[in-house]
Computed example of a mutant assay.
Amino acid sequence: MLKELVSSQKISEKRVLEFRMDCRKCLLTLAGKLQEKSPLVCSMDCLDPGRMASNKDSSCINKLKNILKLLTETKRVDENECDDILKQYRKFINKTAEKKGRFH
């Protein structure tokens, strides 16, 4: 439809570009809102190695538990594997924190 409007000179190429930029802004805003609202996305920062290394409290572990809960509810992860995943995660956090301590 845009091509027809441009070819019939009812709108300019500049106007088409403005329209596309507005659409892009709309999609980016929508994607941002979805990320804000999604419980899975909100918890994903626990997988950031920098956050894992600096996080001595249990917030990263709690966020991983939230992720695992959502994944088991949607049958993406078997419930029997969750304990093992949490053990491996804790072990990785401890090793990462140890290494970080050695370099500072």
Rank of each mutant, 00 (worst) to 15 (best):
Q35N: 15
M1V: 13
K3H: 04
E79H: 05
K10I: 00
F103P: 00
K99R: 04
E13D: 14
Q88W: 02
K75S: 08
P39L: 05
T72V: 11
S12Y: 04
C60I: 00
P39S: 08
N80V: 07
K10V: 02
E13K: 07
K3V: 06
K14L: 14
F92H: 08
G101S: 15
T72D: 04
R102H: 09
N80D: 09
K37A: 10
R76H: 07
E73T: 02
Q9A: 03
T96C: 10
S7M: 12
C46T: 10
K95Q: 13
K87W: 03
V16Y: 04
L5F: 06
A53P: 06
K25F: 09
K91W: 12
V6Y: 07
I93M: 13
V16S: 04
T72F: 01
S59K: 11
D84I: 03
E18G: 08
T29K: 14
V77H: 02
L47G: 02
T72I: 03
T29I: 07
K99P: 00
E81P: 00
E79G: 00
L27M: 10
K37T: 14
D57Q: 06
L47Y: 06
K100C: 10
E73C: 08
Q9H: 05
K14D: 15
Q88G: 11
L5S: 03
M44I: 09
N55G: 14
Q9C: 05
C60Q: 09
I61W: 03
K99H: 05
I67S: 02
Q35P: 01
K33Y: 01
K91L: 13
S58N: 15
Q9R: 09
M52K: 07
K14N: 12
S43R: 04
K14H: 11
L68D: 01
N80Q: 13
M52Y: 01
D45G: 08
S12K: 10
L28G: 00
T96A: 14
R24M: 12
L68P: 01
R90L: 14
M21P: 01
S8E: 12
L64G: 03
S43G: 05
N55Q: 13
N62V: 12
K37W: 09
K37P: 00
G50N: 15
K3E: 14
P49G: 07
Q9N: 10
T29W: 14
L28C: 05
N66V: 01
M1I: 13
K33T: 15
D48N: 15
V41P: 09
S38E: 06
N80T: 11
M52G: 04
C46D: 07
K3Y: 03
R15W: 05
S58V: 11
K75D: 14
K56Q: 12
S54E: 15
S7W: 04
R20Y: 08
E73I: 00
N62S: 10
N80S: 10
K65N: 04
A31S: 14
I85Y: 00
L86D: 02
